[in-house]
Structures are given as structure tokens and as C-alpha cells.
Design a protein around this nucleic acid. Structure first.
Length: 474
RNA sequence: GGCGACAUAGCCAAGUGGCAAGGCAGCGGUCUGCAAAACCGCUAUCCCCGGUUCGAAUCCGGGUGUCGCCUCCA
């Protein structure tokens, strides 16, 4: 196992990863709330978690990756207010919550797969772990960390001294400036729901010692992460927005039950901005993978786009930037394909190159630096083709950019089927060129260009290809 | 108002004390009927003002600007 350093939000420092049970590394990733399609901001978070897993695996670790599917309890506001998102989704589409959850869960994994995101070792649904959550709430009550009031059971943040450490919040200061809590029975505005009592019409409810109801959103992650990874978890990942509320609450619940720190390292990816500003469903710029596909982008172009920036910096999504990523990836695929068709004798890859790649990715996931090395191998470095191909193939275990597929001609410019109409135009143009009818040949090329295709006249005749990577599945 | 970030070329961005990665776009060249692709080459007073240092994009102070979270949302 090679040493891996990661940035820990809790200590605000880069740390050497020391798993509790090497070579196993337990990683818990906050998964989607399946009430709608994931947008590109969500997807960045999962690409990040996936690259973390891949880096750990190539470093020699055995990763036990657990991801939750939230299908109940996540209210419209993180402050325990509003409607349950699942119910809102169900009402919107006039379906049952279960149908909604199934549909969007399937869509989520389809999109994840298209992005070459490896499926977690364990995928767990909140609604299938209600008893574990109830047990946890019961323990918290028994130990005096929680109290019951009219509409549910709440965690008492005043009982947990470390509350606020992850986000650097000062509870006292918070209280002074806090807006008035909606629920006057709560002892402290930051107290959060562990269990909520439901009225009889509520669609999702379960029996509990506190009457019929449903779990608070945060408890599912504490219950499931500890069920599958034990009470000492190596890494927990999520988006930066979860630091102040969700993860703070998770720490409070889990640590209170375990009696010690449960999660060793907290890793958070920064937000994706759109056109330099916030992305939001209400702003109409919360694009989904299908939106990208409809604009002609291959899903892996988005993965490349994410890899090109460090996960802890804000990434500005613009169509122009995605276009740049798509072109770069397409050229990479083409270059790999060309390398694969060379049969010059090989050799050993320069050790420095290989070492540089490993060091980059094991240093808090330095994927942008790793990508720069990829281009060095492809372009500048005088590495023999078979060596370069071998190197890129192994590096792609981390990158996940489909380079083996590209080498085999199943991705990239050569892979996409060319419409018969286009092929016949190319043939028509070939004849025109043979007759030295340049005017006609150029006119045809112009029309092909308008259709999204380009023709290259090489020694072996014309070659036609589409202008950029598109999703062949569309 | 509270908290937290960031400011590097036209665009997306690496780089946390020692001559400024990479990609996209652009320009020049080789090649081409002309192109394209490919290859070669070119393109940055690192927001401003002070300070620390032999040396700062990198550290410290001040300023300006932008953004995020606190409400949808990873």
C-alpha cells in the first residue's frame, strides 16, 4: 500500500490516511435524495467520490464503499421544515413515493454508470433501515442526548460539546443572530429532528415507541454508515453544503451513540458554479446528464471536465468550458486509438513519469496534475507507442475516461456510426476530387460541416468523422 | 447580519518560497488543390498597495472585487 494524503475538513489539514483496518478502507458517501434527477452539481460530488475510491484502490487498498439512497425524511429545508421531498415528488408526478424512489434511483445509477462511476460496494435505502434508526434514537434518548416534544424527538445540541466543530460554528453566536425557530418547543434553534410524528394522512410512516411517524433526515446516515462500516469509519464524503447542518448533525448523533469519534476523515467537494454563479433548480440551470446529452455531449466529457479541476475548488460550469473538455477528450480518445494501431517495439516507461502520476493522485487527489501528465505522454514525451498505451491504460484505472475502449475503437471519432447519407456524400465528393472538381468537392464538404461532420483527405482516401464527441446512445 | 472561500492568459484551470502545469480557443509554420487532422513553434507585469525574505503567484497586513453557505441544492 502506498501512502495517501487527503484533506480532512475536521482538522482543516492534509493528513496521511491511516485506515483502522488496513488494507480495508471504509468509505461512506452521502448519496442522492431520489425525488428528482441528479444535476451536474450532484454528479460532481459522485465523480469526486469515485475518483477517491479509484485512487485508494490503485494505491493498494481494498475499498468498502457504502452509499445511501435517501427515500424518506429529507424535508424541503434542512432546518426540519417544509414538506418531505419524496412526498413533494410523488405529488408532483402523481405517483407513490415508492414509484418515485424506484424511478429516480434507477436514473441515478444509469447516469453514474455513463460517467464511469463504479457502483458502491453497498447501496442502502433509508426506508429499509427504519428499525436501525429507531434503535439509534432510542439509545440517544436513554443517554439523555435527545428529548421528546409534541411533534417528535429532537437531538439536544447543548449536550454535545463538539457541536459546530466541523463547520467552525459558534452555537452561542448563532443563537444570538438566529431567526426565530418555527418550533417553540425546541430547546435550542439548532436542535434537530431524530424522529417526527406523522398525522394519519401522511403517506410514509412507521410504528415507533413515539407513535407512528418517520425518521429525521440525518439519522439515516448515522444508522446506515455504522451498520455497514462499524463505529470507526475511515472516510466520509459529501458536498460542501452538507458541512454545516447535515454532517454536523451526523457527527453529533453517531459520536453520542458510539462514545467516541466515529468518522476519522471528512472529505468535501466544493460546489459547481454555473456561469460564475449559483446553480439551482429555481434558476433553471440545474442541468442533468440528459440535458448535456441533448446538447450533443458525451457523459464522459463531463467527467473529464470535473477531473480538470481540483475537487476542493469551485468549478465554473459553462457550455464553452464543457465544449473544451469534450474536444480535449475526443482528441485523447483519437490519440489512444492511433497509439493502439502502432506496432513498434516497446520498452519500459520512464520511472519518473509513473512516479509523478502516482504522487499527484495520492496527494489529495491531484487529478489536474495527473491529466497534465497524460498529455505529456500523448504529445510531448518521446515514449514508444506500446509503452504509452500501457501507461495510459493503467492510469485510466484512476481517470475512468474509457481509454481502453478508445484504444479498441469503441469510443472516440472512429467509434460512432456514420449515417449512410453522409457516407454517400463523402463518396460523391471523392469522385469530384478525382475529377479535380474542387468547387463541387468544397461545396459538399461545406454541407457536411453544416451537418456536424468533417472530412479529412489522407493518403488512404477520405476519412469522415463527427466534429466532436457525442453520445452514441442518443 | 453570521460563517466560509476565492481573485493566475480570450475560456476552463494546475501550482502553497526558488526561472508560471495542462486543456480549449487564437496566431505562425510543416503538410494539403484548398482545408481538416497531426506535428513544430508563439502567446501571463500571477487584482491593487504595503511588509517579511537573498528570493513571493505562493507567507503577513490593508484595500478592492467576485462567489458560496445560513432558504431549493452535492
Amino acid at each position: 500500500m502506498r501512502p495517501v494524503h487527503v484533506y480532512n475538513t475536521l482538522t482543516r489539514r492534509k493528513e496521511l490516511l491511516r485506515p483502522v483496518n488496513p488494507p480495508v478502507v471504509g468509505v461512506y458517501t452521502c448519496g442522492p435524495t431520489v425525488y428528482d434527477y441528479a444535476h451536474v452539481g450532484n454528479l460532481r460530488a459522485y465523480v469526486f467520490a469515485d475518483t477517491l475510491r479509484r485512487v485508494l484502490e490503485t494505491a493498494g487498498y481494498q475499498v468498502r464503499h457504502v452509499m445511501n439512497i435517501t427515500d424518506v425524511g429529507h424535508l424541503m429545508s434542512d432546518a426540519d421544515e417544509g414538506e418531505d421531498k419524496m412526498l413533494a415528488g410523488a405529488r408532483r408526478e402523481r405517483k407513490t413515493p415508492l414509484e418515485i424512489a424506484d424511478h429516480y434511483t434507477r436514473a441515478f445509477f444509469e447516469h453514474a454508470q455513463a460517467l464511469n462511476i463504479r457502483r458502491p460496494t453497498v447501496v442502502c435505502r433509508a426506508t429499509e433501515h427504519i428499525p436501525a434508526m429507531i434503535q439509534m434514537v432510542r439509545t440517544l434518548l436513554e443517554r439523555g442526548y435527545a428529548y421528546e416534544i409534541g411533534d417528535g424527538v429532537y437531538f439536544d445540541v447543548s449536550r454535545f460539546a463538539e457541536y459546530g466543530r466541523l463547520s467552525g460554528l459558534d452555537l452561542e453566536a448563532q443563537e444570538a443572530g438566529a431567526r426565530v425557530g418555527v418550533n417553540p418547543e425546541k430547546r435550542h434553534p439548532a436542535d434537530f429532528a431524530l424522529w417526527r410524528k406523522a398525522d394519519p394522512q401522511h403517506l410514509m410512516q412507521w410504528d415507533s415507541p413515539w407513535g407512528r411517524g418517520y425518521p429525521g433526515w440525518h439519522i439515516e446516515c448515522s444508522a446506515m454508515s455504522m451498520q455497514y462500516l462499524g463505529d470507526r469509519i475511515d472516510i466520509h464524503t459529501g458536498g460542501a453544503d452538507h458541512i454545516p447542518v447535515h454532517h454536523e448533525n451526523e457527527i453529533a448523533q453517531s459520536d453520542a451513540v458510539a462514545g467516541h469519534r466515529v468518522v476519522q476523515v471528512w472529505m468535501h467537494n466544493e460546489f459547481l458554479l454555473v456561469d460564475g454563479g449559483r446553480m439551482g433548480k429555481s434558476l433553471g440551470n440545474a442541468y442533468t446528464l440528459d440535458d448535456l446529452r441533448q446538447r450533443g455531449f458525451h457523459p464522459l466529457a463531463f467527467r473529464y471536465f470535473c477531473l480538470n479541476a481540483h475537487y476542493r475548488t469551485k468549478l465554473n460550469f459553462t457550455w464553452e468550458a464543457l465544449e473544451a473538455a469534450a474536444r480535449a477528450l475526443d482528441r485523447l480518445w483519437e490519440a489512444v486509438y492511433q497509439l493502439a494501431s502502432c506496432h513498434r517495439p516497446g520498452g519500459r516507461p520512464p520511472a519518473e513519469l509513473e512516479e509523478a502520476f502516482g504522487e499527484a493522485v495520492r496527494d489529495d487527489l491531484g487529478l489536474p496534475r495527473a491529466l497534465a501528465l497524460v498529455w505529456q505522454v500523448v504529445r510531448d514525451e518521446p515514449v514508444p507507442a506500446p509503452v504509452a498505451l500501457d501507461l495510459l491504460s493503467r492510469w485510466d484505472e484512476v481517470l475512468g475516461l474509457g481509454l481502453d475502449e478508445a484504444a479498441a475503437g469503441r469510443l472516440g471519432p472512429v467509434a460512432d456510426p456514420i449515417p449512410a447519407e453522409v457516407l454517400s456524400m463523402v463518396e460523391e465528393r471523392r469522385v469530384a476530387r478525382a475529377a479535380r472538381d474542387w468547387e463541387r468537392a468544397d461545396a459538399i464538404r461545406q454541407r457536411l460541416g453544416d451537418m456536424g461532420y468533417t472530412v479529412e483527405d489522407g493518403p488512404e482516401g477520405p476519412r469522415v468523422r463527427r466534429l466532436r464527441a457525442i453520445d452514441a446512445g442518443q
